[in-house]
Write a protein that binds this DNA or RNA. Structure first.
Length: 612
RNA sequence: GCGGGCAUAGCUCAACUGGAUAGAGCGUCAGACUACGAAUCUGAAGGUUUGGGGUUCGACUCCCUAUGCCCGCACCA
C-alpha cells in the first residue's frame, strides 16, 4: 500500500530522472514539468534575438488569472518603460519571435503589453499523459535541489512538559517544509532540537527529590513532572534559599552528578516516549534528536573561537558579541556565556550551527520557531556568518522560518503558565472524535472499525490542514471549531474529493492505481478544460511553496483543484456509454487523484481512505 | 525609550512578493439529490484593502505619516 510515509524517504533521483526523460521521448518534447520556466526560457531567447538580452530584459513569466490565460509574461512593460519604448509594440515583436510555441499555446497580447499564453487542449493532454503518478511528478520536480543536503530543526519541545497547541505549528509547518524540500530533490535531515538542558531542571530535580508522588508518576508521568516543576518554581519564588538549592542541583547535573543525571534521564525518557505518540499521529519521523544536552561539551570551542577571532568580548562578567554595523545589535548584546560561566540558548545554538555545518555538511539550515525569537536568530546568524568567515568554514544557507503565535480568546499568546493550556493530545483526540461523529452520521452502515479508521485520518488531517492552509506569518486565535472544521477550505473537503474519485473507479470496475488510459483524448467541455488547466499548475504551486518556505501556497492550489474537480463532477458525468468521453474523463479523475494525494502527502497528511 | 510584526467583506482567511475587474469559506438569501456519494454543486448580496500623503504605465503589496493591537530588547528558551 502506498501511504503518506513514501515521500519521507529520499527518492533515487537519478533513476527517476532517467525515467522522466524516457517519458518525454515517448510523448512530447515541448512540455516539461514546469511550463512556466520553459516559457521563461523561450521568451528570454526571443528577447535575445531582438538584442534585448544585454540591456537587462527579464521575461517575468508568472501564472495568470485563468480568464486571461495560463501564464503571462510581463517583462515588456518594465523594459519598455526603462528604454522609453512603446510596450505594446515591443511585446508584439517578442510574440513574433515565439512562432515555435504556436503548436502548444494560444499566444495573445493584452492591455499595455501583457503577453498571454494559453495551453491548447492537446498540450494539456500531453502534460497529463507524462505526469501520471506521484513518482513522475516528483521526478519532474527533483532537479531543483538535486545533490543538496538540508537540515530542518522543528518541533523542538522542552522535556518534562507536555506539548500544547502552541507546539503544533512548528511540528506541522516543519514537516511540510521537509517534504517539500525532499520533493525538490534535496536530502533532508529532520532534527528535533529538544530542550533537555535548560535551567528548568534545577527546580525540577529539587522538587523531584522532595515531593515526588510515586503513584502519580506511575499513572501519568508528564502530569507529575509538570506538578513538580510548578511546586519547585513556586517554592523558589517564595524562598531564596530554595532557589539557591535548585541552582546547585543544576550545577551538580551539569557537572555529571550520578544521582541527578539518573533523574534527568528518567524525565527525558518518559517525555520522549510521550512526544513520540504525537509524532506518530502526525506522521513525523525524525532522523536526529540532538537536544541541547548534546551540545554541552561543544560550547567551549565556541567560546574559544569567538574569543580568538575577536568577535566575542567580556561584558559585565558575561561573554557577549556586539555587531557594530547594526543599528540595534551594536548596543544590544548577544550573550553567549552567562556571567556565572554557564551556557545558554545562544551558546548551544552556535555550537549547533557549527555541528550541522561540519558533521552533516549541510547546504542549508532551517529553524522553525515562532516569530518572538526573530531577534535571537538575527543575532545568531550575524554571528555565525562572521565566525565562519573568520575561521574559513563553509557557510550554509541560514533560514529562520517564523510563524505567528497561537493566541487565546483574549488575543494574548497561550503560555504554559496560564491555566487555559490546550494539550496537543487533547486537540487531536477531540478532532478525531468529532470526525467520528460525522462519519457515523453520514455512513451508519460502515463497519465500526472503518469509521474509526476514517476518523483518525480526517481528524488529524483537519488539524494539520487548519495550520497549513493559512499564511504562517499571521497569528491566530485558537478556536476549536476553526481547528477541526469539516466544511469549506478544510482537509475534509480535499479528502472528500479523493473518496469520490476512488468511488468512481470502483463503480467503473477499474483499479484507481493503474487504470488503462493510454488512448484518452484531449479535454473538451469547459469543465474538463478548466480542470486540466488547474492540474497543470501543480509545479508552480510546489515551487512557490518550496522557495518561499510557505506551504499554504500548495494548500491553496489543492483546494482550488478540488473545487475544479467538484464543479466538473457536477457538470460532466464520467461513467457514460460513449467510450471516448468516458476515457478522457477517467483520465482527468485519475490525474486529479494523483495530484491531490501527492499534494496532501507533501503537506504531511494521510490520504489512505477508500471512502468517507 | 529603541526596534520588529500585524491591520483586507459581519466573522475566519487568500491575493503567486509591483500586474489586468481584490478572491474563497462560514454566516445570510434563492435554487439543485428517481444523478458516478448533497461532507457537494449553481447563483445573489456583502469592500474607500485602518486614516492621510507619496513613488509610477500600474499599489493590498514599496516609501513617509497618524492610529490601534501583538511581540522583542543583559544573562529564559
Amino acid at each position: 500500500m502506498r501511504t503518506y510515509t513514501d515521500l519521507s524517504q529520499p527518492q533515487p533521483a537519478k533513476i527517476l530522472l532517467a525515467q522522466s526523460q524516457a517519458q518525454f521521448l515517448n510523448h512530447v518534447m515541448s512540455l516539461p514539468f514546469n511550463v512556466a520556466s520553459h516559457l521563461d526560457t523561450a521568451v528570454r531567447a526571443a528577447a535575445a534575438k531582438l538584442g534585448l538580452a544585454d540591456r537587462g530584459f527579464q521575461p517575468e513569466v508568472r501564472v495568470a488569472d485563468p480568464a486571461n490565460g495560463d501564464y503571462q509574461a510581463n517583462g515588456a512593460l518594465a523594459f519598455a518603460k526603462r528604454e522609453k519604448q512603446n510596450p505594446r509594440a515591443l511585446a508584439q515583436q517578442i510574440v513574433d519571435e515565439l512562432g515555435g510555441l504556436q503548436a502548444d499555446y494560444d499566444i495573445s497580447l493584452a492591455g499595455p503589453g501583457f503577453i498571454n499564453f494559453r495551453l491548447k487542449p492537446a498540450a494539456l493532454l500531453a502534460w497529463l499523459q507524462t505526469y501520471d503518478s506521484e513518482e513522475h511528478l516528483q521526478s519532474g520536480a527533483a532537479s531543483a535541489r538535486h545533490g543538496q543536503t538540508w537540515i530542518v530543526d522543528y518541533s523542538s519541545p522542552n522535556t518534562a512538559k507536555q506539548m500544547h497547541v502552541g507546539h503544533l505549528r512548528s511540528a506541522v509547518i516543519g514537516e511540510a517544509i521537509c517534504r517539500l524540500l525532499t520533493f525538490s530533490g534535496a536530502k533532508v535531515i529532520r532534527d528535533n532540537h529538544i530542550g533537555d538542558w535548560g535551567t528548568q531542571f534545577g527546580k525540577l530535580i529539587w522538587a523531584y527529590k522532595r515531593h515526588l508522588d510515586p503513584a502519580a508518576l506511575d499513572a501519568d508521568p508528564l502530569e507529575e513532572f509538570e506538578r513538580l516543576y510548578k511546586a519547585g518554581n513556586s517554592a523558589a519564588e517564595a524562598d531564596p534559599a530554595v532557589l539557591t538549592e535548585a541552582q546547585q542541583e543544576l550545577v551538580k547535573l551539569q557537572a555529571g552528578d550520578a544521582a541527578n543525571l539518573a533523574v534527568w534521564k528518567t524525565i527525558n525518557d518518559v517525555s520522549l516516549a510521550a512526544f513520540q505518540e504525537i509524532y506518530d499521529r502526525l506522521g513525523i519521523k525524525f532522523d536526529a534528536m540532538l537536544g541541547e544536552s548534546f551540545y554541552n561539551d561543544k560550547v567551549d570551542r565556541v567560546y574559544r573561537e569567538l574569543t580568538g577571532t575577536g568577535l566575542a568580548q567580556p561584558s559585565e562578567g558575561a561573554l557577549v558579541v556586539f555587531h557594530p554595523e547594526h543599528p540595534r545589535f551594536a548596543q544590544q548584546p548577544f550573550i553567549i556565556r552567562k556571567s556565572d560561566g554557564a551556557a545558554n540558548y545562544a551558546s548551544s545554538d552556535l555550537a549547533t550551527a557549527l555541528y550541522r555545518a561540519e558533521h552533516f555538511k549541510v547546504d542549508g539550515i532551517i529553524v522553525v520557531t515562532d516569530f518572538r525569537q526573530a531577534d535571537h536568530f538575527e543575532q545568531l546568524y550575524l554571528t555565525v556568518r562572521k565566525w565562519f568567515a573568520a575561521e574559513n568554514y563553509r557557510l550554509p544557507e541560514l533560514h529562520h522560518v517564523t510563524f505567528g503565535s497561537v493566541n487565546g480568546e483574549d488575543g494574548k499568546a497561550l503560555k504554559t503558565r496560564d491555566g487555559g493550556i490546550i494539550r496537543l493530545k487533547a486537540l487531536l483526540d477531540e478532532a478525531t472524535e468529532r470526525s467520528y461523529q460525522l462519519v457515523s452520521s453520514k455512513n451508519p452502515d460502515f463497519p465500526e472499525a472503518e469509521r474509526r479508521a476514517i476518523a483518525d485520518i480526517v481528524g488529524v488531517a483537519s488539524v494539520q490542514y487548519a495550520d497549513l492552509s493559512q499564511n504562517r506569518s499571521s497569528d491566530y486565535v485558537f478556536a476549536w471549531d476553526k481547528m477541526i472544521s469539516l466544511e469549506g477550505n478544510t482537509a475534509a473537503y480535499l479528502l472528500y474529493a479523493v473518496a469520490r474519485i476512488r468511488s468512481i473507479f470502483r463503480k467503473a470496475g477499474l483499479d484507481a492505481a493503474m487504470p488503462p488510459l493510454a488512448d484518452a483524448t484531449a479535454p473538451e467541455t469547459p469543465q474538463e478544460i478548466a480542470l486540466a488547466r488547474k492540474l497543470g499548475k501543480f509545479p508552480d504551486a510546489v515551487q512557490l511553496a518550496t522557495n518561499t518556505l510557505r506551504p499554504h501556497f500548495l494548500s491553496l492550489h489543492l483546494y482550488e483543484l478540488a473545487g475544479e474537480f467538484s464543479t466538473f463532477y457536477a457538470a460532466d458525468k464520467v461513467i457514460v456509454d460513449d467510450p471516448a468521453v468516458r476515457a478522457r474523463r477517467l483520465l482527468l479523475c485519475h490525474r486529479t487523484l494523483v495530484e491531490l494525494e501527492a499534494g496532501l502527502h507533501l503537506l504531511g497528511l494521510r490520504t489512505d481512505l477508500e471512502r468517507m
